[in-house]
Amino acid sequence: MQESKFKRAIVLIDEYNQKDPNQVTVDGNIYPKELLYSQRMTTTLLGFETNPSEALQIAARAQHICRWQIPRKDYPMTRVGYLKWRETLKKMHAELTADILNTVGYEKEFIKRVSFLINKKQIKKDEESQTLEDVICLVFLEYYLGDFAVKHDDDKVIDILRKTWKKMSKKGHEAALNIKYSDKELKLVKAALESQ
Rank of each mutant, 00 (worst) to 15 (best):
D153P: 00
A192R: 12
H173L: 03
K163D: 10
E133W: 01
E107G: 08
L96V: 09
C137A: 15
F140Q: 04
N29Q: 15
D27Q: 15
M41L: 06
D14V: 01
S4L: 10
K5I: 12
Q122V: 03
A94E: 06
K180W: 00
G47N: 11
E174T: 14
Y31L: 07
D155L: 11
V157H: 05
V150I: 13
T25A: 10
W165Q: 06
Q122T: 09
A149W: 04
I158W: 04
Y16L: 11
A55H: 04
L188W: 08
D159Y: 11
E34H: 12
E54C: 02
Q57L: 11
F140K: 06
D153L: 01
E174Q: 14
E142R: 14
K166N: 08
A175L: 10
A176C: 04
I158A: 01
G81S: 08
T25V: 15
K166S: 09
K187N: 05
S4A: 10
L186H: 13
E194P: 00
L186I: 03
R67F: 11
W68E: 15
S53L: 06
V150P: 03
P21Q: 02
A192T: 13
G81F: 10
I65E: 10
Q2N: 12
C66I: 05
V135H: 03
C137E: 12
D126V: 07
G146I: 01
L138I: 02
W85A: 06
G47V: 00
I30C: 10
N29E: 15
K33D: 11
R86F: 02
